[in-house]
Design a protein around this nucleic acid. Structure first.
Lengths: 140, 140, 140, 140
DNA sequence: GTGGTCTAGACCACT
DNA sequence: GTGGTCTAGACCACT
């Protein structure tokens, strides 16, 4: 599982973690029954307080996306296996809104469409490189 | 002056307003001495509390980007006229970070580079349309 | 930390609090890393609204004099340790200006230099007594 | 009449003007029937908006300390001639309070009694020099 | 527990 | 009209 938080972006840490785990489950990147890192492990990796992770896991569990099995660990819920197209679409729409926000801000900074396309291309490269260099997660 | 806020995005309203005004000043979109909307007017336009706008204006004033003149109004600071390349660059870098965030989230949703480029193109169209349809601000 | 506000003096409460905390940091009376009272605690002690304290702390934080750590508390900034002679001098000059104001007002009331010196002596006594009788702050 | 305002001290301009005129009337420095500068003249001298002065004059007139005679000008009220000991005492006490405030702030800056006495002495010199060099007011 | 943000509303001061 | 300060209270996020 990949999670990466941006500090100082103004977006609450818990929200960032939630969105990323949720995206991977909805898209099938994380499969049903697959184990998630333990609360403590993820908290350590992200340098975040344990309670912050606990609250995210609890919320996802309350929505039925994951299951916290006492003494065993946390797993993607069985029903969560089939990518849910409605929620996926909702998530994509949210992404589109955020693109709008970035484009507006870029425009206000005086950037044109070409500049913004270039920014995106550079991001794509950076993120691709990240992914390839990331050591595989212990529990994936 | 153009400001547009996204509610429910997790990013504090005040931060969104701050970033957008700041971008326009740094890029020269707002010129030195130019009047900003009054705190009350902007608050009304954005359907936001007056204090929220006041806090943003105070912060920008503390950094010397704008000047609040008691009883007169609020203006872009005289020194803010020449686009500050260092701060502009910092702001662009911040934008690049946020692109990275979106790309990561998109990737987690299973989107490929083509999908993301398409999302950007659609955003560019939407935002261009917004701009052209926006009635000119009374005070710019 | 000692803060004492005078209501009805015409000087905004927030400004009084700001000046006093600032003085103690600049002079080294408050040391680097030292914890400040929490916003709620100080608000309670001074019988002032929490937001008023928050605004003061935010301003001092924006200037790098203190650090607000989410969930942890507020602390004198590490760099603030070495008394800053330039800012200290500025603060002393401000004090001198205010002495001028008092002397002018006293003169207008018909007081002579001797009367004013006596007023100062009495103040020194009163304030000394205050200090000695103040119970040590829990967190200093 | 002597009035001197300190900008940026946090004390409202109108309050500063009020206190200074009031002090001179209470102490007999301004005698009954004596003309005050016109609203416009004082506003110009102090580089203050006319309305600010108007409001101060109106307040003092409402308390019976001065009289605004339409078409003639503004004068110290006849009854205001005999220095009012009770109000004078109140004003002196206020002054004492403000000395306390300054002494506290000075102490927080690390100044001792000697430093503060020196500050006062320097103020006395400065203010004496001001007074002697001030051109006599046209209407005194 | 800690700080962070926002609202609604009041009252004041300056142009 | 403009900005400046303050209160009371809510709800959220991080340790």
């Amino acid at each position: 599982m990949h999670v990466r938080i941006q500090r100082g972006s103004g977006v609450p840490i818990s929200r960032q973690i939630d969105a990323q785990i949720r995206a991977q489950i909805l898209s099938g990147g994380l499969r049903a029954q697959q184990p998630l890192p333990s609360v403590r492990q993820l908290a350590r990796e992200l340098a975040v307080n344990v309670n912050t992770v606990v609250r995210v896991y609890e919320k996802l569990a309350a929505e039925g996306l994951i299951e916290m099995r006492h003494g065993e660990g946390t797993f993607v819920a069985p029903q969560a296996s089939t990518p849910n197209p409605r929620q996926l679409a909702a998530h994509c729409e949210e992404l589109a809104d955020e693109f709008d926000g970035l484009v507006r801000r870029g425009t206000m900074l005086g950037l044109g469409p070409q500049d913004l396309r270039r920014l995106l291309s550079e991001s794509l490269q950076r993120v691709r490189k990240e992914a390839s260099s990331t050591p595989l997660d212990s529990r994936k």
